[in-house]
Design a binder for these strands. Structure first.
Lengths: 221, 221
DNA sequence: GTCTATAGGCTGATAGAC
DNA sequence: GTCTATCAGCCTATAGAC
């Protein structure tokens, strides 16, 4: 079962244990097309036939790998979160003052958003996951898990912010939760306006990520 | 025709000319219910029957006032933008340095988001308006108009930012467009996480808006 | 102005051939 | 593993009674 493989891989990745088998090529192809469709027309606006058409196939292929449209959406979301988590965890582990670490995390977050717009736009949509009215018990388990990762993702930023307050590199009077929601909002919003251009080199993207992160951490003054 | 009335009122409001007739009570009732439904379950996820049920009526009533579901969505979006525009234009007109003005605008934006979550969540969804594949020529006109307001809204912030750079109250090296997209993202994101609570007094909301605006303008250091 | 009834189209999911 | 065929349900929009 493809779902379970992905689940296992992702779960171990979060725990910091690498070394799970990569996704099968056929699954990745489907996920890529699904991510694009969901990004362009939303969950309810995308039909399985749309995804199949983009894939150059029919829905038989998709239903062979995914039990339902909801499951498909979940897997795209999961993959998007995996990439975000991986990038931010790495940025967090490099050391420096709390504020420096926070800036690196925001920058990594922003760069990952740009390099995976389709997947991350689905993650942003997924904020409204309750909308999907996940009904089956299995889906509810996956849903709870996804919400949990979202929460832990945000919490990582809060912790580092508090560390920054403790080491004197961030203002003491700030509401850390609100500040983090603001920063993450500024970055997540990229999923809505940013679309890669032909002339977007890696350097361009890195520069944008750095600029945005600096503005969020240092302000405009 | 209700649509046209609303259109006229809104258009004159944007031009700064008040004094158009207020919306009919029956229309407001429908818009309120529609805003809640669209916010909770999205455009495609909301059926006209859902809105009617919330309204305590049947869809006959809704189709009497709105030609289509898309038109209904447009009107909610329009009303949401009207409220945002009104608040930010007022904040912009008060004077002070560019940076002070900008902070007041962000604060007003944030407060309006909190006080009209349902409408503003629809506005945020509307960023993907092309998804609705507005087909009729009339709808395309409305769509173009809405996109235009969005653009002018953002442009107001860019102008004030540049004024702040000119009067020395903002850093010269900042990419104004990116900075504004960041700030607006931080505030727009409220539509996703903020939901009013019982104990949310006006003072509480104002304090949150002020905190968020300060963090966005001054940074965390 | 609001309701009921219904037409007509699309979509998620399944069954079974190859 | 992939495709074709198909069903059953839901949803937009309209027509016409009251």
């Amino acid at each position: 079962m493809a779902n379970q493989d992905i689940h296992r891989e992702w779960a171990s990745r979060i725990r910091g244990q690498e070394g799970s088998e990569p996704l099968a090529e056929s699954v990745v192809e489907i996920l890529d097309c699904a991510a694009l469709c969901f990004t362009e027309t939303g969950f309810q606006g995308t039909s399985i036939d749309d995804v199949a058409r983009r894939l150059g196939a029919t829905k038989g292929r998709i239903y062979h790998y995914f039990r339902s449209k909801t499951d498909l959406f979940f897997e795209v979301h999961r993959e998007g979160m995996k990439r975000l988590m991986g990038a931010v965890i790495e940025a967090k582990s490099a050391g420096g003052t709390g504020r420096e670490t926070l800036q690196r995390m925001v920058e990594a977050h922003a760069l990952t958003m740009m390099q995976n717009v389709a997947y991350e736009a689905v993650v942003v949509q997924g904020v409204h996951l309750h909308r999907l009215s996940a009904t089956t018990p299995e889906q509810r388990v996956i849903l709870d898990e996804l919400m949990d990762v979202r929460h832990r993702f945000e919490q990582m930023f809060v912790e580092v912010f508090e560390a920054a307050q403790a080491d004197g590199s961030a203002r003491q009077d700030a509401d850390t939760s609100l500040a983090v929601k603001g920063m993450l909002g500024a970055v997540n919003w990229m999923a809505i306006w940013y679309r890669p251009r032909q002339d977007d080199s890696l350097e361009t993207q890195q520069a944008m990520a750095r600029n945005l992160a600096t503005l969020q951490v240092e302000g405009i003054g």
